[in-house]
């Protein structure tokens, strides 16, 4: 599968949120730790619902977590 045409700052946001683990974020979002890891690495493109849930966990707007890659246009 091709890489998603966007990047994300989940790893940084987790660190800033008291070094939240992938498992903790996964529990709060309703996905597995492995899914969070895959999203962070850009290997898996989450659904809109999960993307919004992740952003809500960090109390950030969606575009503060996921950014469209300019070279993907």
């Amino acid at each position: 599968m091709a890489k998603p045409p966007f990047t994300n700052d989940i790893r940084t946001l987790r660190f800033l949120a008291g070094e939240m683990t992938q498992g903790d974020l996964g529990d709060r979002v309703g996905v597995t730790r492995q899914t969070i890891a895959a999203i962070e690495q850009g290997k898996y493109s989450p659904s809109l619902e999960v993307a919004f849930r992740i952003a809500r966990c960090f109390d950030k707007p969606l575009e503060a977590v996921f950014q469209w890659s300019d070279d993907a246009d």
């Binding site: 309703g30 996905v31 597995t32 492995q34 899914t35 895959a38 898996y44 989450p46 659904s47 999960v50």
Partner: peptide, 8 residues
């Protein structure tokens, strides 16, 4: 008890 998520 972990349920299938959207990736699974």
């Amino acid at each position: 008890d972990t349920r299938e998520d959207e990736r699974d």
